[in-house]
Write a protein that binds this DNA or RNA. Structure first.
Lengths: 169, 169
DNA sequence: GCTGCTAATGATACATTGTATCACTTCGGC
DNA sequence: GCCGAAGTGATACAATGTATCATTAGCAGC
C-alpha cells in the first residue's frame, strides 16, 4: 500500500517535484508488474505531467513533435492506451481528451468534474454519487461499469470571471 | 402540460403507434414554438423513431440514403442539432450516437444507462443521483450543467446472455 | 555473447466523425 | 408576387482514431 500511496502523492505534487524522480518511480512500479516503460510511453506521460491538465491526443502529438520527437498518431494512442490500462490515465469522452489519474491502482468509482471553459479537471471520489448511481443500476437491472462519471460545468474561477455583475467587486 | 405529456407518451409507444401521427403532432408543437419542421428534420426524426434506439450520425445517414434520400453528413448534423436544441434528441458522448429523448420540454437532470453490448439506452430520472451530483458540485465550488449523466454498463438481457455459468452455481 | 521469441515501434494509409463555406432554394409575412 | 430570413445541397476539408506490416528492441535460455 505504501508504494501506491507514494506514487499518488508524487503525482499530486509533480509540478513542485522533480519530474524525473516521479518517472523513475513509475517505471520501477510498472516493471514490477511486468510492464515496459519505453521511450514513447515515458514521453507521453512526461507531457501530461508537464501539462498538469487534460490534453487531446493530437495536442499531445504536437507537444511531442515540438520537443523534437517524431511521433505519429498511432504511437500516441498506443502509449495512451497503455497508461489507461495501467490506470494512470483517464480518457474523457465528453472532451475527447486525456488526463493523469491520481489513483494508479486501477479502475475505481469516482467522478471527473470538467470545466467547459478552461478545461480544468478535478477528480473526486464521492461515495454519495457513486452509491446512488449503483443503486439506480440495481433498480433497473443494469450492471454498471466501475469507472469515472463525467460531470461537466464551470469551475469556481471561470464562474467568477464570467460574472459581469460583481459579487463583491 | 397535457401537450408535453401526450408527446412523451407517444414517443414511448411510437413502435406500436402510427408514426405519422406522432410526427404530425411534433410538427404542430414545433410550429407553435416558431420552429420549422422540414423534410430533412422530419426524415431524421423518423429514422430515430423507427430505430427505437441510438444511432451514430453516419448510421443515420446510411439509413436515410437507403430509403432513397440524398443526404449529406452536414445535413444530418444540422437536423440533429435542431432536435437537440428542441430537446427531443440527446447525444451520447461515450458512443458518439444520438437517441430520442422522452422529455421534449428541454434540458432536465437525469441519467442515461447505456448498454456496452447491445447499445440499448434507458433514460432515467433518479433524484438521488442528480441530487448527490449537485451536492458534489457545490462542495467543490463547481457549477454543474443541467443535463444527462452517462452511465455505461451491461443491461439485464445482455448480462443474462453473457452468463455462461448459471446464476446459482 | 548468441539465438530466438515476444512486445513495441515506425510508417503509411485509411476509416470515422464532424465543420466551414457559399451559392441556391424555400418558407412565411407583407 | 416580393422580400428577408432560415434552411438546403454540395463540396471540400478538419479532426480524431485504426489497421497493417515490416522492422527493431528487450529479455530468456543457452
Amino acid at each position: 500500500m505504501s508504494a501506491k500511496h507514494t506514487i499518488r502523492r508524487e503525482l499530486k505534487h509533480a509540478a513542485a517535484d522533480d519530474t524525473q524522480r516521479v518517472l523513475e518511480r513509475l517505471e520501477r512500479t510498472c516493471r514490477v508488474r511486468g510492464q515496459r516503460v519505453t521511450r514513447q510511453r515515458r514521453a507521453v506521460l512526461q507531457v501530461l505531467l508537464a501539462e498538469g491538465g487534460a490534453l487531446t491526443a493530437y495536442e499531445l502529438l504536437d507537444r511531442l513533435r515540438r520537443s523534437g520527437g517524431r511521433s505519429t498518431p498511432a504511437a500516441v494512442y498506443r502509449a495512451l492506451e497503455f497508461w489507461m490500462d495501467s490506470g494512470l490515465v483517464h480518457r474523457m469522452d465528453s472532451t475527447r481528451s486525456f488526463v493523469l489519474c491520481e489513483h494508479p491502482e486501477g479502475p475505481h468509482p469516482g467522478q471527473l468534474l470538467i470545466c467547459r471553459q478552461c478545461g480544468t479537471v478535478i477528480e473526486a471520489e464521492d461515495k454519495a454519487v457513486s452509491e446512488a448511481a449503483s443503486r439506480l443500476g440495481s433498480r433497473l437491472n443494469f450492471t454498471l461499469d466501475v469507472g469515472l462519471l463525467e460531470l461537466t460545468g464551470v469551475c469556481a474561477l471561470c464562474c467568477a470571471r464570467g460574472r459581469r455583475t460583481q459579487p463583491a467587486s
